[in-house]
Amino acid sequence: MTLLDQVLGDLDAESAQLDGWVAPLDDAGWRTITTPEGWTVTHQIAHLHWTDLASLMAITDEAAFAAGLEEAAKNPTGYVDEAAEELALTPPTELLAAWREGRTRLHAALRSVPDGEKIPWFGPPMSPVSMATARLMETWAHSHDVAEALGIEVPRTARAKHVAHIGVRARGFAHMMRGEPIPEGDVRVELTGPDGDLWTWGPEDAAERVTGDGYDFALLVTRRRHHEDVDVQAIGENAQHWLTIAQAFAGLPGNDPKRLADR
């Protein structure tokens, strides 16, 4: 099994889990508010579906995707949200069927990309593995929004390691999105996964370190939890600051998460 197959398998599992939560909902359930900004369950699925379609376009029609990049540059803070608003007008049963079909097509397209070829994106071009990991990260994050709104306890699985990986890799990007210089020096990251496995990144002799719960770190870098509400610790000024701005997704960071006590 290739690394791409492994990541797509985990993405399938995340998508199927969310699918199982939303499929039984009636119309009122689909209108459940999931975020402080007012996104409903419908908006969440619409957003995931739109991003799948954008990813598919980046692989199969680069000219059309380039045109989309130009439109996004004209409206960097609203382009994605407006796309979700438009798709959210689709009746839930149709939207769910379209999301299922779209993610199946995307997985097939990712497997068709020649070895060594990069896929254009809103950020830097990505390999098929990186794009699949990014889709898993987004599905994982938006699944939490839906589950919390519906009162569902999300199973803590090792699939969160993919999310943590992107969060670690995006440390410099998080600073850039805040208009901050990227600090010099490495940060050693040591996290414990839900199965007890140790997840590590960075040189062992790095002066600054981040340690703690891997699943909580994934919640932190997807900006689903305030840094004071997770079991993640930092040693060193740069590492401590990173925990306050960490993000695992492209684009602007959006509003900072509120502490659980203030919600």
Rank of each mutant, 00 (worst) to 15 (best):
P120C: 01
V232M: 04
A149R: 09
E85D: 15
R171V: 04
A206W: 09
P24M: 15
T32A: 15
T192G: 05
T211M: 09
R103T: 04
G179V: 04
N75R: 15
V22N: 10
R224A: 07
E138D: 14
A234E: 04
D186C: 03
I245T: 09
A67E: 12
I45C: 13
V22P: 09
A218K: 05
A66K: 06
H142M: 02
A13F: 08
D115G: 03
E62V: 08
W140P: 01
D52F: 05
I119P: 00
D231E: 13
R259A: 10
G123T: 08
T77E: 15
E86I: 11
H162V: 01
T60I: 00
L106P: 02
D10N: 12
I45Y: 11
E62F: 00
L96P: 01
D195N: 13
E180P: 02
E237F: 06
A13Q: 14
L56M: 02
R135K: 11
Q44F: 12
G68V: 01
E190G: 07
D10R: 11
E228K: 11
A16W: 01
S130L: 09
R225A: 15
E70G: 01
P253H: 10
E85M: 13
D12I: 03
L191E: 05
A109H: 00
V189F: 11
F122N: 03
A207K: 14
R156I: 03
L18R: 09
H47W: 13
I59H: 04
G78M: 12
I235T: 14
A134W: 00
K161L: 07
G212S: 10
